[in-house]
Amino acid sequence: MTETVTLGKALNHGLRRALENDPKVLIMGEDVGKLGGVFRITDGLQKDFGENRVIDTPLAESGIIGTAIGLAIRGYRPVCEIQFDGFVFPAFDQIVSQVSKMHYRSLGKVRLPIVIRIPFGGGIGAVEHHSESPEAYFSHTPGLKVVSCSNPSDAYHMIQQSIVSDDPVVFFEPKRRYWEKGPVDLAGTPDLPLHTARVVQEGTDATVVAYGPMVRTALEAAQAAAEDGRRIEVIDLRTLSPLDLGPVHESVRKTGRCVVVHEAPGNLGLGAEVAARVTEECFYSLEAPVLRVTGFDVPYPAARVEEEYLPDLDRVLDAVDRSFGW
C-alpha cells in the first residue's frame, strides 16, 4: 500500500490514523478545523472527526498549550498546532515551565502526552516570524522530547509515534519540504523507534549530520561531492532531544571528518552540542575539527536575502573542503 505523497499529506495521513486509533487523541490549534490549517496539514480532519476532536481554538498560543495540559491531566492526548515557528513564544512559559516539568513535579504521577507541532525553518519567502528555527530552546529544556522529520515516510510514522508516546514531544516540521514527495507505506509500521538517528546515505570520507529541511541539502551536497570522488555519509538526526549520537560516533570513527548542518543560528545551537560530543567520543579518530554550517547569528533576515542566510549545497561542500584541507 505504498503511495507517493507529499510530506504535508503524509502528516495528514498520520494524524488521521492517530485520531482513528485512539478516541482520546485531539487536534487543537488556530485554523485547524474548517480551513485545515494554514498549510492544510489537518485538511478534512474536522469534517470526519467532528469539532470536539479537531478544535479551532481562540487565537492565543499560551491558551492552546495551557488548556492542552488540563486536557492531558483529564486523560486526553492533545496534538497542538503552533501556526508558525515564530509564534510559539507566547506559549514558551507553558511549554518550558509546565509541560516539561509536570511529570517531574508530580514525582512521576502525571503524564502529559502532548504533541506540539511546529512548522519551522525558512526558504518560503515569508515575512518576519515565519521562518525561524527555535529547536535549540526546547532541546535545552529537560522534560521535553524534540524531534524533526525530513521526508514523507518519517513524517507519517514519527507523528504517530510522537502521539503514542507518553512523553511531551515538540515536533518540528520542515515547512519548505511540505510539498516534496516520497514513498510512504500507509499500512506499514515504522522501521525505527522514534528517538533514533538514521544513516540516510552511506559513505567513507566525511560525515555530514543534519535534520529536518537540511537533510535534503546534505544529500544534494553528497551527490555533488560524489562527482568529485568524495563519498559522504549523511546522517539524519531525527531526534534532537534526546540526541542519538551512536550512529554519528560510529560514522566519524570511520570517516574522521564531521560537518553539522542546521538553519538555526550557530551560537549555542544543536551543532555546538553535536561537535562537543563528537569531540569527546571520537577525539582520536578526528582528522579535522568538527565544523558547522548554520544560519548566521542575526535575526532571520528579509526574504530577498534568505538564500544567502540559509545553508545550501555550496556552503556544505565548502565546509567539507575545509575539513579535508585541515
Partner: peptide, 13 residues
C-alpha cells in the same frame, strides 16, 4: 498558569 490548566480540564469534563 494553572487557570489555563483548569480551563482545559473543564473542557475535558
Amino acid at each position: 498558569a494553572q487557570t489555563l490548566h483548569a480551563t482545559g480540564y473543564a473542557m475535558g469534563v
